Simulated assay, not measured.
Amino acid sequence: MSTSIRSQVIPVSDLDAAKVVYTALLGEPHTDQPYYVGYNVGGFEVALAPGDASGGPVAYVDVDDLDGTRQTLLDAGATERDAPKQVAPEARVCVLLDKDGNAIGLRGK
């Protein structure tokens, strides 16, 4: 299994307010949409997404086989927080939780 962590998605309750803060820190975003604001930080994606901020940021591990990796983690005791969903033509994501409730994001095909 080939894995790498290349992105972090930060859920925010007020996208416009968060964008001001993160743009001051990281510079202009490469993507600025009502559903996603993305910054490239030395090849690492830092993104803001509107949503429930109580779960905190999620680091996404890029995997070759999202379904297979997801099942391996579920079999190892992880639980599902967010089922797999298509976010781009070649990318799906899901979020699992470890035994302590820490989020594990997966991104793959």
Rank of each mutant, 00 (worst) to 15 (best):
A17Y: 03
A17Q: 10
A18Q: 13
A18P: 12
K19M: 06
K19W: 08
V20R: 15
Y22E: 02
A24F: 10
A24S: 15
L26A: 07
L26S: 04
H30L: 06
H30R: 13
T31Q: 11
D32Q: 01
D32P: 05
D32T: 06
Q33S: 13
P34I: 01
Y35P: 02
Y35S: 14
G38T: 05
G38N: 05
G38H: 02
Y39I: 08
V41H: 04
G42V: 07
G42E: 00
G42Y: 00
G42P: 05
F44E: 00
E45F: 04
A47S: 09
L48V: 12
L48E: 02
A49R: 03
A49G: 10
A49M: 14
P50Q: 10
G51Q: 10
D52C: 08
D52K: 04
A53T: 04
A53S: 15
S54G: 11
G55L: 12
G55M: 11
V58F: 01
V58I: 10
A59S: 01
A59W: 00
A59T: 06
Y60F: 15
Y60Q: 01
Y60M: 05
Y60N: 00
Y60C: 02
V61A: 15
V63S: 08
V63F: 09
V63H: 10
V63C: 13
D64Q: 14
D65T: 07
D67S: 14
D67M: 13
R70L: 07
R70H: 11
R70F: 08
Q71M: 08
L73G: 02
L74K: 10
L74C: 10
D75K: 13
A76S: 15
A76T: 10
G77Y: 11
A78I: 09
A78S: 15
A78G: 08
E80T: 15
E80R: 07
R81W: 11
D82Y: 01
D82L: 09
A83Y: 05
A83P: 09
A83T: 14
K85F: 11
Q86I: 12
Q86M: 14
V87L: 12
A88D: 09
E90L: 13
